[in-house]
Amino acid sequence: MVQIIVNGKSIEVEEGQTVLEACLSNGIFIPNLCFLKDREHPHASCRLCFVEIEGRPAPVPSCTVNVEDGMVIRTDTPEVKRLQKSAFKLIMSGHPCHAKTCPTEKPCTLMKIAKHLGVGLSPKPLEKLERDIPEVVDFGFMFYFPYRCVLCGRCVHVCRTQNEGKPLLTFARRGFDTMVAFFSDPGENVEAKCRSCLACINICPTAALVLKADERKTA
């Protein structure tokens, strides 16, 4: 166990975990979308989990730093909030959504983050990003809604883990056109295999992946 100080409060946490995990497991919320415990290297792509650590010249993503004894951390400084708001607005500019039409169990991850940051779900003052992506893609046993997807990569990662390093899900294309894609190998009984797993659907923070039978969420 090591001792760290978060927002002026001293807490005892387990060694070997990230600052993000240590805070979350002690009831201190830090916005995050792309963190997954078993990832070999943190993805650190959502840029939401910034904190300030004493002795470091600039805020750092808390999912990339392991706790050390005596670490002094702040999760609520104006600088941290500013960075988090910018990252959140950037995500929302490519994720047009509305609380009323959101199919996730409310409040969804994005709403929680918005509330924490004291902002709405609109990307203002940033523009809504026009992306050359389809409204919905049929993955066979599930639907994928590219506009809902925040490209956190969690689904691709869990699919890789579930399939011994050979995922069925992947990121396709690049830049603003990036989306998740699904390709199976011949002879694979995808229907049965995937329906008994559903790891991707369960880990998606935005209900961008929806099982076909789940009509309620596909509207």
């Binding site: 050979k166 995922p167 899900l169 992947t170 390709f183 190998d185």
Partner: peptide
Amino acid sequence: AIREVAKYLDLSSSEVYGVATF
């Protein structure tokens, strides 16, 4: 062809598509 490439390099065809579409 994508499937054969995947098989040859011991990848899933999904990964090959991911790289190729980039």
